[in-house]
Amino acid sequence: MVRTYFLLLWTWTRAAAAYPASFALMNLLGFVTAAIDVAVILVIFANTTTLAGFSRDEVLFLYGAAALAFTICDTFVSNIDRVSSHIRTGTLDTFLIRPVSAWIQLTADRFQITRLGRILQAALVLGYAITALGLDWRRGWMIPVMVLTGIVIFGALWTLAGAAQFVLTDAPEVVNAFTYGSYQLSQYPLGIYARDVVRGVTYVLPLAFVNWQPGLYVLGRDDPFGTPEYTRFAGPAAALVLALVAALAWRQGVRHYRSTGS
């Protein structure tokens, strides 16, 4: 299964590399596009020293952790959000009759290796923030855990988005509000949002565990909303539950899919 996935990725990469100049340019541009969000953070901190009590480097740390997880999912999973266009054009049927899981095929569908530039950008920001804040391994062991948790959460979100498109064939853009919106939300300390919003993304859609809760532990800070200490470590469990829900939703979607019979 994993082999098939990488074989598909390799196929799409070879196809893209047929135009080497465009290939290099797209990688570079991906890097620059992703840098806009950082530029916005820097502009904000050109006007203030703290945002909701967090310093520039702390915000960059939270941003970097969320961005690394998100861009990895954006590269390797997000292709699944073209489900609705496959349904409309009737090409979904081909995916379903091949002897490989539809999820594997769709996440690798039209894989763009040129998005690696964004992952690199996120990794650089995170690396910078870790150095600038002088984080050590006593609390820093949480960083790889939180990035992995983030990958599972965002991967599950994309899968849910893909599953939702079995129903939302006419307006697939609705899911962008959840996928890209979740990313936008997790770029900043959740301390800036209203209490109810934060409650929602802690207990309903566990976005708080992408970088906020574990990030508070790494930075050694108290939660301004007063959640107990143990929620800092609840991330992996929350991610697992969301992944299960996403898997079930995806299964339901595929099962109830009716071909247009073209």
Binding site: I44, N47, A52, A171, P172, V174, N176, A177, Q184, Y188
Partner: peptide, 25 residues
């Protein structure tokens, strides 16, 4: 309408960032 929904959600998220900034300054 889906676009309007997405723009509205992002509007809310961005508004909180600006609120935090204007609270500081």
């Amino acid at each position: 309408l889906a676009g309007a929904f997405t723009n509205s959600v992002f509007g809310i998220l961005r508004a909180y960032i600006l609120i935090a900034l204007w609270q500081a300054r």
